[in-house]
Design a protein around this nucleic acid. Structure first.
Length: 275
DNA sequence: AAAAAGCTCAACCGCTTTCTA
DNA sequence: TTAGAAAGCGGTTGAGCTTTT
């Protein structure tokens, strides 16, 4: 049968986005909202593939994106989440407000995988040598100074990049057997109790779980998959799920961390949760 | 100062999953 | 139930930048 390409590739721009293209895309999405990526380029007057537009928006233009300077807390969280979830970058990114899956994936591949290798080869050296630490700090400072051209471009066109922290948006989950729903509800209610007042959760008929805008650390449920709950082999829900408990703990810690950051701007949703 | 090597990260590609008629 | 469309995801690439030699 063959799958039709996402767009006709004839005459479409590829490669780095220009400031003008960014502006057009941003304006269009601010007016019409996200979605309908396939028709977006045509409607917005962009000579880009819909996929490319989506990627550009998700990974770069979205106003709530935090860029660069991944802190040690975030780094620690990424490592721990990766040990639980593997290369599920979007799930990991969902736990790191303002971070994109692409950014985390890149950060993992360029920094953390090497760092972990180093630590593994030197199991006693859990703390980096001071010289190495200082070197990295120096690098970061230097890098901060020399902001990427694209960032400059954004500034040139009058955009201000606000650092805004928000809770992850809900992720739609696939259908799952009824027998699992009660367990998932327990977990989701657990989250609600921990997070604060007014939290609520529900599962709709299609097996979607929404917990006050939080997605649950659930595996990929598949229809009729009512046998072994091994799923991808790294996540189990049938028995007392240690991984889920660990994720709950991690997430709780991270929320505490966010709360502690007085300077962060909370969106209204998060504020209502923590009020 | 120049060349080589290494690093970073935006963007692309192809595949899977989900939605819808 | 099925097929096609749309969206999403993770792996990979390569240009541009930085560091080292």
């Amino acid at each position: 049968m063959g799958r039709a390409p996402c767009c006709s590739k004839v005459g479409l721009h590829k490669g780095p986005w220009t400031a003008i293209e960014d502006k057009i895309l941003t304006n269009y999405i601010q007016t019409h909202g996200e979605g309908h990526w396939r028709s977006l380029p045509k409607n917005a007057g962009l000579l880009r593939c819909g996929k490319s537009c989506r990627l550009r928006w998700m990974n770069y233009l979205r106003p709530d994106i935090k860029r660069g300077n991944i802190g040690t807390d975030e780094e620690d969280l990424i490592i721990r989440l990766h040990s639980l979830l593997g290369n599920r970058w979007s799930l990991i990114a969902g736990r790191l407000p303002g971070r994109t899956d692409n950014e985390i994936k890149n950060y993992w591949n360029s920094h953390l995988s090497k760092k972990l290798k180093r630590l593994q080869s030197d199991p006693n050296g859990f703390s980096k040598p001071a010289s190495l630490e200082a070197q990295e700090l120096h690098k970061r400072k230097k890098k901060k100074k020399n902001q990427k051209t694209t960032t400059k471009e954004s500034k040139e066109i009058g955009e201000t990049i606000k650092i805004k922290v928000h809770l992850p948006k809900p992720i739609r989950l696939a259908s799952f057997p009824n027998s699992w729903k009660s367990r998932l509800m327990e977990i989701s209610n657990g989250f609600g109790d921990k997070i604060g007042n007014g939290s609520s959760s529900h599962a709709d008929g299609k097996g979607k779980i929404i917990l006050d805008g939080l997605d649950l650390p659930c595996p990929d449920f598949r229809d009729g998959d009512d046998h072994d709950l091994g799923l991808d082999g790294d996540f189990q829900l049938g028995k007392p799920p240690e991984e889920v408990e660990m994720l709950e703990k991690l997430y709780e810690e991270y929320l505490e961390l966010l709360k502690a950051q007085e300077q962060v701007q909370l969106d209204s949703f998060a504020e209502s949760l923590w009020a």
